[in-house]
Amino acid sequence: MKAVSRQQLQELLAAYVGEPEGLPPIDPDGQADFIAEYFAAGAPELKAVFFLCNLSLRILSFLLEGRSFSRLDPEARQELLNRIIASRNPLIRGIGVLPGLPLLMSYYRRPDVAVPLGFDAAALKKESDLRVVSRDRDLPPKQEDAS
């Protein structure tokens, strides 16, 4: 994931995902692999936008908090993000919103996160595999034929 450094990615993941109660912690390395794959499959501009948002977030941190994003405590980082996301200025809001797309997806798609929330894709897949849906039309029952 070359758009940001590993440390920056860890900070961003922690700030966006928070620490959902009863769910596993973030896994920066594993999630970074997914994010890299997601960027590679998409429009090249998105990776650049992610990089720019990260940079802008760090500038906004100086402007609004007087400290670098890395030096803020985890709670303050989340507060800053929520302030940015709540902004009515679309450019500023975009800086907070866009990085959330790959970051949140990379966390909540993990089976060890989704299953405790009640979404077990593997179990649903197994169940759906048992279904046989043909395009044949059912013949009407004989009684209806007779009537």
């Binding site: 700030a15 928070g18 109660e21 929520n82 949140l104 997806m105 909540y108």
Partner: peptide, 24 residues
Amino acid sequence: PPEIHSLALPFAGRRNASLMTSYP
């Protein structure tokens, strides 16, 4: 599914997390 649901919430961090634990 959760990974799409989390994107529909206009919050980050703890606020997003506390709502996502109520996903069901």
